[in-house]
Amino acid sequence: MKPSPRLISLLINLWPPFLGAGIRVRHIRPDWREIVVSMRLGLTNRNYVGVHFGGSLYAMTDPFFMLMLMHTLGSDYYVWDKAGRIEYIKPGRGVVSARFTLEEAALESIRAHTAGGDKYFPELQVDVVDASGEVVARVHKTLYVKRKKPR
């Protein structure tokens, strides 16, 4: 039995690195195709000039595409983070958030590229936005996906 999105959300929110940085999972859609995460600005995640520390901005986006693909594709697939990069657009102040989404077209492409057992490295992107909806940072995640050999 797989853990529910609600249980996963609770566990992630209690994970010490996220708890200390003020990172919160706000919502996981039951089909795992959308996750909303937020982070408040506090003493533990601000940098020298008083805005969100870049490492915390990246951390708030780190595991979610991998988790979404693992739960959406199922146990017939290996899914790992392969690479990531972040572009800082403007200083982050106050509460920032990220909405991760998986479109059906992306899932179909992944399934098609891995149908023969080949490795595939999809690149997914999420924007971190401030309370007014302005982009603070853009994160690109490259994942490793491979269909497992049938037993």
Rank of each mutant, 00 (worst) to 15 (best):
G94T: 03
E104F: 03
A131Y: 00
L124P: 10
D62P: 04
W32K: 10
L43N: 02
T101D: 06
L19C: 07
D81G: 14
W15G: 01
L73Q: 09
H140P: 00
S38W: 07
P3V: 09
G55C: 06
M68Q: 13
T114A: 12
A137M: 08
D31W: 12
P63M: 06
L102F: 09
G84A: 15
P17M: 04
R46K: 13
R138I: 09
S75Q: 12
G55Y: 05
K119S: 14
V51Q: 00
Y58M: 12
Q125D: 01
L43S: 05
L69W: 10
S75N: 12
L11R: 07
F121T: 14
W80L: 15
H52K: 02
S9W: 03
A59Q: 09
S97R: 15
P3I: 13
P3M: 14
T101I: 11
S9Y: 01
Y120R: 03
V95H: 00
T101K: 14
L102R: 11
K82F: 13
S132V: 11
P16L: 06
N45G: 01
L107I: 15
I89E: 04
D31I: 13
A83P: 01
I23G: 07
G94C: 10
G22C: 01
V129R: 15
L143Y: 03
L11Y: 07
L143K: 04
Y77M: 07
V25I: 11
Q125S: 12
L124M: 15
R111L: 15
E104M: 04
V37I: 13
R99C: 04
L69T: 05
S4V: 10
D130A: 07
A21L: 11
Y77P: 08
V126T: 13
D127M: 05
V145T: 10
H113T: 00
L43E: 05
K149H: 09
K2C: 00
F121I: 12
E103V: 02
E108L: 13
E104A: 14
R24E: 06
E134C: 02
F100L: 06
L73D: 11
A83C: 02
N47P: 09
F53T: 10
I86K: 11
G54R: 08
G22W: 00
A137N: 04
H27W: 05
S109Q: 14
V136M: 05
A21S: 14
Y120Q: 08
G116P: 03
P122K: 06
P5N: 13
L19Y: 05
P17A: 07
R93E: 03
W32L: 01
K82S: 12
H71L: 00
A112E: 13
K141N: 09
F64S: 02
R147I: 10
S9H: 03
I110D: 06
I8C: 06
K82V: 13
T101W: 03
P16K: 06
I8G: 03
M70R: 15
